[in-house]
Design a binder for these strands. Sequence first.
DNA 1: TGTTCATATTGGTCCAACCAATTCCTGTTT
DNA 2: AAACAGGAATTGGTTGGACCAATATGAACA
Lengths: 223, 223
Amino acid sequence: MNTSPQYQLITKRILELVETNGYKRGDKLPPERKLAEQFHVSRNCIREALRTLAEAGVLESRHGDGTYYKGTDFSSIMKTVTSAVSRHHERIGEIFELRHMLEPQIAALAAKRITREQLDALKAVVFDQHQAVLKQQDDSQQDGRFHRILAEAANNTAVLEVLDASQALIDDTRIAPLRNESRGLASVTGHMRIVDALENGDSEEARKAMEDHLCEIEQTTMN
Amino acid sequence: MNTSPQYQLITKRILELVETNGYKRGDKLPPERKLAEQFHVSRNCIREALRTLAEAGVLESRHGDGTYYKGTDFSSIMKTVTSAVSRHHERIGEIFELRHMLEPQIAALAAKRITREQLDALKAVVFDQHQAVLKQQDDSQQDGRFHRILAEAANNTAVLEVLDASQALIDDTRIAPLRNESRGLASVTGHMRIVDALENGDSEEARKAMEDHLCEIEQTTMN
DNA sequence: TGTTCATATTGGTCCAACCAATTCCTGTTT
DNA sequence: AAACAGGAATTGGTTGGACCAATATGAACA
């Protein structure tokens, strides 16, 4: 037989606990001793499960304080494997390709589903980005935020998670920017066109605008 | 002071050990008890570090055997991505949507990149599927294989991993079949059209064919 | 040569205690 | 009443030793 070790089962049960009790990001879990008692296993076993979940980015333990539900935060996980990622620079192109597949359709979906608030947030971000560019500051923060809000507006968490992970990979490999003013302005213009399409609820135009935007970025990146 | 817990330090030291000693994929690490002695920490602490590395995909422990170096391949990184997907199995609709975003573009890419051998494999699968349908057998195996070969032909491991994860989820939830002869034949016809487009290297037609194919499936699934 | 079985090795689990960081209450001071 | 200081309670981090369970190994056997 190939029975799973107990700590793996416990891992799942803790996840269940979190889900069925509707834990939200930042909530504190019961102390290890309680969990051990509740699941009828040793505290040791609980801790191994917690280490697993911590590495997976689901939880975070703070000495003397407690264990917290982190939601799914990828950037922290990625840090632990950064060294590994660096050995796979050649694959980063695939990640870009993956994003290139998703983003235009996200834009199209968002055109149908975006809320008033999200649209406003988007406009605010583009505004901020414009300011940053004009001041010759780094606008990568705003740029990332723009794409993230869009993914949220598409209202599909699965896609959102995939995109977040991709972004984390890209960030971590520091492939990044080469940002200058002309490139920044082009980015702002692209974003404005997308926002415009969203405002009109025009799916096709949104898709196309995003498509063009990404192509432009790719060209200026591959200098 | 904000000293890291010991198990985190041990995690790094184990990685060092692996690197400096030139461990290769599949090599066996020293037993936990040795490691504990060598690093002057408790075996418990070692184990927590091992759990962390195991979750990161670097190591694998086998009961009664030993702990092995798994190497750090790309898929271990993507595991992070795919695990995100798998935490959302309740949202099966989103998963379908995700696939719907990817598959047509995969078809388009595959039209440019597919090899002779892959095209042959594709034809063989469609052939088998046709046989299965005519014999009123379940063709889900062939159907899955078709989409997988296509993803391989697109030659993008990142996308492939995401799709595999999605497929596993769909399989898992047994949403599936409702397969009957007319639906099966429609599927075969759809696949044939896609193969035809691939053979001609026609990206756009491949995309469209896949798009239509998916729409048809969705309709017949939502009975 | 091939099989079986005892044994050693190794990961998995448990317990009970103690260390260390943080929080929280309580009493004091201002 | 507000601010502060200090100690107790809570909670994660670590330890050592014991035992269970799966696997590998090698010797005895057919």
